[in-house]
Design a protein around this nucleic acid. Structure first.
Lengths: 184, 184
DNA sequence: CGCTGTAGGCTAATGCCATTAGCTTAATGG
DNA sequence: CCATTAAGCTAATGGCATTAGCCTACAGCG
């Protein structure tokens, strides 16, 4: 072995800092290399290319989000669990808006797996509604779509007046919980 | 004046075709120039730069979407209007997934105006629920978030099993309409 | 203690892309 | 007919990702 200065994980870490500081568009291999104190081509010893770095970064971010949401849902059930899931999710987005925006949603294999962990949390939160397996999947997709849509719009500045967004999100939580409780 | 071969609108049109064919990443000035049968720098006579082209394209796409949604909602009210809005929106996304994905959500001035037209449609659709002005805005944001989230995920392949998405979306519509009808 | 294999770094080179500068031409309107 | 100007062009610059090929320090072996 040679000296282990950089590593795959360290490169992802630097990329994370870069995205936080400058947004998705600031994530460039040469910027990462500069921060790492290394020449750009050296990064290819740790990462196949920019696309792979983006994917690794997305997996990392989705993992962080899943950890937080998971901790928030733990020990709750029913409406309380859905509320906790939605609030903790948005909390993450508000603390790391650029991170969230940079997270890819594409069906890459590695990402799909990270995403399925998150889906699992959502399914667990919905268990108390007593839905069938298939109904639970549909319900989880609805929650995910609603939360993701709100998050993307808010993180990207897609809404107009920022002061009332808390209220809008409260309404969204109420709509989802009451809508999911109502038998079809 | 000189010969009016190209035009701002024609450039946007070509960009639209390019996005449909190759996705957002395929939208490059040199590709547009090739399709237009012109040298790349010539495009700068019609468009300030790539960023502006992206914005014009987004405005164009949002306008198309608004037209379709608007026509679908026309003459309906209450749950029926919300259902029509959501179904026509998704219908547009399914027919033009790359277009929808390429649509920016950033708070550029021109885009914000195009977006407000769409918000106006949503507000009109919600009128029958008898909400106050402010409550209607929150409700419209919820509908937008839910639809947009589902659309982004579906257009980007972010969901797993594709065969049941119609059912998931039906549930989302039910959740939104019943949730919005339920007094808080 | 020296040898060697290799991980991890480097420089050089390529090619694509956006963008700018400055020139040329063709149509228009007086 | 001619001046203006819109709309095109070529040439040049600089950023970026990526590839090829070289160099070196360290680990573990004999």
């Amino acid at each position: 072995m040679a000296r282990a200065a950089l590593s795959r994980e360290a490169v992802v870490e630097i990329a994370l800092g870069l995205v936080d500081a400058e947004g998705e568009q600031g994530l460039t291999l040469s910027a990462v290399a500069t921060r790492a104190g290394v020449a750009t081509p050296s990064l290819y010893k740790h990462v196949r290319n920019l696309a792979e770095l983006r994917e690794l970064l997305s997996i990392r971010i989705m993992g962080e989000l899943t950890d937080e949401v998971s901790a928030a849902v733990l020990g709750r059930s029913g409406d309380e669990a859905v509320r906790a899931l939605m609030e903790s999710w948005r909390s993450y987005v508000l603390r790391h808006p650029r991170r969230y925006s940079a997270m890819l949603q594409t069906p890459e294999p590695g990402l799909a797996e990270a995403g399925s962990r998150l889906v699992g949390i959502a399914l667990a939160a919905l268990r108390a509604y007593g839905l069938s397996d298939s109904a639970a999947i549909h319900a989880a997709r609805c929650v995910r779509a609603a939360v993701h849509g709100f998050s993307m719009l808010e993180a990207g500045g897609g809404f107009g007046l920022p002061e009332k967004l808390d209220e809008s999100y409260d309404l969204l939580i109420d709509v989802m919980t009451s809508g999911l409780s109502t038998p079809r």
